[in-house]
Write a protein that binds this DNA or RNA. Structure first.
Lengths: 301, 301
DNA sequence: TCCGAATGTGAGACAAATTCATAATACTAA
DNA sequence: TTAGTATTATGAATTTGTCTCACATTCGGA
């Protein structure tokens, strides 16, 4: 049975119009075409859809069954078209974010809260699973935005700068290094270093300080959660290097000391990588704007 | 946007098969045709339905939205086809009955009870409203069966005989006519006659007795319900003529007398009129069988 | 950088849907 | 009944759309 949407519309129109000729008008086609179509449909279905004995053509039992289907399905099609229209105009869409940066939760969450309120119809998600390669996933449209501090030139991708930050040294107030104003690579030799569980090329402390100086810390410990890292640091089980925005809460805490890394001032920039065709979408533009301004405000607060 | 079921099937197949070429196999068409179709669909929708960057073609966000629709709608289509198949094989259908015979409730109800148990999927109804013309309604498929005792030759209709009955005279035991063994037309001259509220040509007492003899009863009273007629007769407010099956309950009641009409024995036959094309449907055949056998059993009980 | 697999393109064949003109049929009102 | 009107059916020609075939293109991995 070769049913088509056309047929459902026909059934509905004939029912509404109460007759074939009027229905033909409704559907902008000739009465003849409708007659042919109806006949073909009945042949296909092998069932009489209409009562032909009476002149203003009327639905039969089977026809009514089909009408019910039509009235259930056709609005769904319209809904789909509405959704597509919204998609095209950018009112709706998907914003699945992959973070290459563990500590980014801290500012990303407040930003996403603001975003959700402005774009309730956009499907938001964060993929913290750093196991997979974020940029290829972005290309494959498995995610729509990647937070990263390592911009690369890739066709079809765009690295939108968000804000600058400084990797900061953090240790317990009781740690001997608390006496120094600036921490340099050599200072790590006697320390247990606590980092997120990612490869060294994703960790500022290695890329900016230790690797260039070819210094290896006394020991290394990998911890998932920022709060746990701070706890361990607080009890002097090790030291760490974290973005400054993470440390705003403990700057005024007497148990900790935070120090800039040296010798020179180290500044890093965070980027949001997107597919070029997405960059112009209104909700994406809005998210980028929030991602530029909000974290800065947070740092000041 | 010119969506068709074909497209929904395509979306689903591509998702299932995980690629355009494999999907083409699934749908028994060339990969080329699918490619054309998909392109056309995307043009129509104005939305990218697929991620083309990676080679085994994959659904995009919009594509997934459409997939959801497909998975909701396609099973419904299948269900419809199932229903139609069942309709064709006659498992399901409609049996709306019109009665030209008021008293038929008495045997029809038990018959319908039996029928409902055997054909639960057939939509059963009785239209007692005798206001409308039953046979034209049958033709127009407003009803599917007409109980009648006046067979007529009509193209496309069939009068299936059910059973024979005898119109019987009934009166109060105190009525003078109780003394007679057989009641003839002249006997009605002094009586108040109680009938159903239908035209004379539908009443056995007129068609069989009074009209031929050109006798008019003393008075006429029209009452809707059989039980009320019997009540009035019991209190000797009038006499009546009813089919014998209605009177089986009062045959043994000392308040009433029932007498045959004369001079000759009067036998009438009840028919079930159907449209010829319905007559072969299994459920219809079954109903006719029940209509032939059950009322006879009832009369004996 | 090359190979193989997967998708895209264009022309022609074919099927299906539509239209126009007209016939057949049912309803309505006198 | 019957004429008149409204409604549906039919047939042939035309248009539209979809498929296949053959070939071009692109992508991903060795």
């Amino acid at each position: 049975m070769h049913l088509e949407f056309r047929h459902l519309r026909t059934i509905r129109a004939i029912h509404q119009a109460g007759g074939l000729a009027r229905a033909a008008d409704l559907l902008n086609m000739t009465q003849s075409a409708l007659s042919h179509q109806v006949k073909g449909l009945e042949d296909q279905a092998g069932v009489e859809l209409f009562v032909r004995r009476s002149k203003p053509l009327k639905l039969s039992v089977a026809g009514l069954r089909m009408l019910k289907l039509a009235e259930r399905i056709l609005p769904e099609i319209d809904a789909l078209e509405e959704d597509f229209k919204a998609l095209k105009s950018g009112k709706t869409g998907r914003l699945h974010i992959a973070m290459e940066c563990h500590a980014c939760f801290d500012w990303l969450f407040p930003v996403l809260e603001l975003f959700r309120r402005a774009w309730p119809d956009v499907d938001v998600d964060i993929r913290a699973g750093l196991a997979f390669e974020a940029l290829p996933a972005l290309m494959r449209e498995e995610v729509d935005l990647v937070i990263s501090s390592d911009p690369v030139q890739v066709e079809g991708m765009m690295f939108n700068p968000l804000f600058d930050y400084h990797p900061m040294f953090v240790a317990a107030a009781s740690n001997p290094l608390a006496g120094k104003d600036v921490i340099v690579a050599e200072d790590f030799r006697d320390q247990m270093l606590i980092t997120y569980p990612v490869s060294r090329d994703k960790l500022d402390v290695f890329t900016e300080i230790l690797s260039p100086a070819k210094v290896e810390p006394r020991g290394l410990r990998q911890v998932e959660l920022t709060a746990v890292i701070l706890m361990l640091v607080g009890s002097n089980r090790g030291v760490s290097v974290l973005p400054d925005w993470v440390l705003r809460d403990i700057k005024s805490n007497a148990d900790y000391v935070t120090r800039p890394l040296g010798p020179g001032v180290i500044t890093k920039r965070l980027y949001a990588a997107t597919r070029v065709e997405d960059t112009l979408k209104p909700y994406m533009a809005h998210f980028l704007k929030l991602g530029r301004s909000e974290p800065v405000k947070l740092q000041r607060a």
